[in-house]
Design a protein around this nucleic acid. Structure first.
Length: 311
DNA sequence: AATTGTGTTGAT
DNA sequence: TCAACACAATTG
């Protein structure tokens, strides 16, 4: 039951032990929230423990804000169904949101902690969502409207890169064929310009990976299979990155002048059961998104009957 | 000087 | 694993 797994605020007891002590001593007040500790200046610190080491999550004016910060860290460190300071339905919507699960999934613990300490987590999450829905990943309508959202995004985001799309590698993408199929919608949206330059024979696309290595892939349209593919050079990437079927390949582009392209990959390890559980709580929103192809895009397989389970 | 964040301890 | 406490390190 949800409430059972929730931190019980009633355990706060600094006045029940010795009433006189609480009243007269200079002891700091206890917080009723898990992971929240008082600071001598009246503010509140947040911390979480991992492998018997404390990870400091920052200081906050507001006790509840510190508690919420612990919640986020707890979700990142211990998983989506970790015990938190508030029951799920007490949380603000974004904490029940599938998108947040994806956000947490696509950032390292260190990155999340850094955001929490800088109090920038909410902003970063909003940016992420903004990119996801307006940056073209979900394919809204072609033309002006998307461009407008895009320009708006440039103004509001401090991020250096824009998420183009992600693809879950199929067995043949990582097989001996030396090619990866780029889903048509994404190919035409993001790579069309490059392709049109050398249509027929294909072109070379240049990417950088997360450590700054440069990768060049042949890119062309295979009329026989009516698909866009990354070909020449692709298998080197597969081998070097030890890419496996089911891993997520992410394509990004810098928003600056140069419009450099980036390629990155990570193991597929989204906790599907947790997401489905949250989905059932939230109801409507994800259903709408699913119809737009979000499931396949992020490799979160929500269909009950299909696919292996990953954990 | 004020505040943050660590070293450390003891309890659960 | 956790919060309490003392206080060193850091910040403005």
């Amino acid at each position: 039951m949800d409430l059972m797994s929730c931190w019980n605020r009633s355990t706060r007891d600094y006045s029940t032990v010795i009433g006189a002590k609480a009243a007269s001593s200079n002891k700091l007040p206890s917080s009723g929230y898990k992971g929240v500790v008082p600071q001598s200046n009246g503010r509140w610190g947040a911390q979480i423990y991992e492998k018997s080491h404390r990870v400091w999550l920052g200081t906050f004016d507001d006790e509840e804000e510190a508690a919420k910060t612990y919640n986020i860290a707890s979700l990142k460190f211990r998983g989506l169904d970790a015990i938190t300071n508030f029951s799920r339905n007490q949380m603000t919507p974004y904490e029940c949101d599938v998108t947040e699960a994806l956000f947490l999934e696509s950032h390292s613990k260190a990155e999340i902690v850094d955001m929490l300490r800088k109090h920038s987590y909410a902003n970063e999450l909003e940016m992420y969502k903004h990119k996801l829905y307006n940056g073209g990943a979900l394919g809204l309508d072609a033309g002006g409207k998307r461009m407008k959202c895009h320009l708006d995004l440039m103004d509001t985001c401090s991020s250096e890169r824009e998420l183009l799309f992600e693809k879950v590698a199929t067995p043949s993408d990582v097989g001996r064929l030396n090619r990866m199929v780029i889903p048509k919608q994404h190919a035409e949206k993001h790579f069309q310009v490059h392709l049109s330059v050398g249509f027929g024979k294909g072109v070379l696309l240049k990417f950088e990976d997360e450590v700054g290595n440069v990768w060049r892939f042949g890119y062309c349209y295979w009329s026989s299979s009516q698909s866009y593919v990354l070909s020449k050079g692709w298998i080197r990437f597969v081998k070097e990155k030890k890419l496996k079927a089911g891993d997520v390949v992410r394509f990004e582009r810098s928003v600056g002048e140069d419009k450099k392209m980036f390629i990155d990959c990570r193991p597929r390890n989204v906790d599907v059961s947790g997401i489905r559980e949250m989905h059932s709580r939230v109801g409507e929103p994800l259903g709408a998104v699913q119809d737009d192809g979000m499931v396949r895009l992020f490799g979160v397989n929500i269909q009950p009957s299909t696919g292996p389970r990953f954990q």
